[in-house]
């Protein structure tokens, strides 16, 4: 157990015992050493289930709109998860006073499929630990340290916001990547069209991207509506395009770039890249970043005099 892990547990114990919260949401050890699983603790005796390691991938903010509606909840959160929480607060989906945020400095999260690509047998893994910018992998045969570019999630390789922006208590220090991964998307419109057509054609419409997204909280998604029918349920390229493009537009100025959509996609659609595109457009045109506590309101719920007029600025 690391020092930070023990401090998380102590804090969870404290806030449950002193009645500050009714529930703690965090990560517990998963069914295999390269996964963790969300855990919901309402008894101080169970806090030892909480873990903090490089496979704490899930953005637990997804549970807040339902679980923190009528009660006080403590949540263990990475900086990206915290940006989700900020967005949820700004959009009135959760009340700040119902939350106790245990914020963590982050050093990036591991993508297990990259471990396989690095010729590590997943079944041999015993533990994963942070080692500076890289990851120490303990296997049945010994241990090795891999560089972050070899093992981190794509989102993490582009992330520079590794300090929590909002918290009640904070543990651990952020480790920033020494090099940011450059963009690889095609530039020409027709190439981009082709690129995204290929990506979306893979979609099987399992909606994992939508379900895992903390900011996709609509009670009835447009994709599930029958009257009017915005997009058919069949997984064919044109309908998939409609689903993903509409979802992206709905998340413009709202997505905080945690990359959960891409992590859970069973067919490898690079959804997070699309989200990054949207976020960059929003940043460039409106100087707005979703999930930033400095912003008082959601982008689309705000008017500023210097906002550009889309009619005059069609790119």
């Amino acid at each position: 157990m690391t020092e930070i892990e023990s401090r998380i547990r102590e804090e969870a114990k404290k806030v449950l015992e002193n009645g500050l919260v009714d529930l703690v949401i965090g990560w517990a050890a998963g069914s295999v050493p390269f996964r963790t699983t969300p855990v919901f603790i309402d008894n101080a005796q169970d806090v030892d289930k909480l873990v903090w390691n490089p496979v704490c991938a899930n953005n637990l903010a997804v549970y807040l709109p339902k679980m923190a509606k009528n009660r006080k909840v403590a949540i263990v959160a990475k900086p990206c998860d915290i940006r989700s929480i900020v967005a949820l607060i700004q959009e009135n989906q959760v009340k700040r006073e119902n939350l106790y945020i245990i914020g963590l400095g982050c050093a990036g999260v591991v993508d297990p499929s990259k471990l396989e690509s690095a010729a590590i047998r997943l079944s041999d893994i015993k533990a994963l630990e942070w080692e500076g910018e890289g990851i120490r992998i303990v296997t049945v045969d010994g241990e090795q340290v891999l560089r972050s570019t070899e093992v981190h999630r794509e989102m993490c390789l582009a992330c520079t916001k590794r300090e929590p922006a909002l918290y009640d208590v904070k543990f651990g220090e952020a480790v920033l990547p020494s090099q940011i991964k450059p963009r690889e998307l095609p530039e020409l419109p027709e190439e981009r069209q082709k690129y995204w057509s290929e990506q979306f054609s893979k979609c099987i419409r399992c909606y994992a991207c939508r379900q895992i997204c903390p900011n996709c909280y609509c009670e009835v998604c447009f994709a599930d509506r029958v009257e009017p029918k915005w997009t058919a349920k069949k997984a064919v390229p044109e309908e998939n395009w409609m689903f993903h493009a509409t979802r992206a537009m709905h998340l413009a100025g709202r997505c905080i770039q945690c990359g959960e959509c891409e992590r859970v996609c069973p067919v490898g659609i690079r959804i997070a890249e699309l989200m990054r595109e949207m976020a960059e457009a929003v940043k460039n045109k409106y100087d707005y970043e979703a999930g930033d506590p400095k912003e008082e309101a959601p982008l689309l719920g705000t008017f500023r005099e210097n906002d550009i007029d889309p009619a005059q600025h069609s790119e």
């Binding site: 919901f40 399992c206 994992a208 379900q211 895992i212 058919a232 349920k233 069949k234 859970v264 069973p266």
Partner: peptide, 25 residues
């Protein structure tokens, strides 16, 4: 159920899950 997010990954990727919907367009 507490942690399940209600997506279709498990059943759509399952080799034996066979449930389907029928729609008219």
């Amino acid at each position: 159920a507490q942690k399940c997010i209600g997506c279709g990954v498990c059943s759509y990727m399952c080799p034996s899950c066979s449930c389907f919907d029928i729609q008219d367009e």
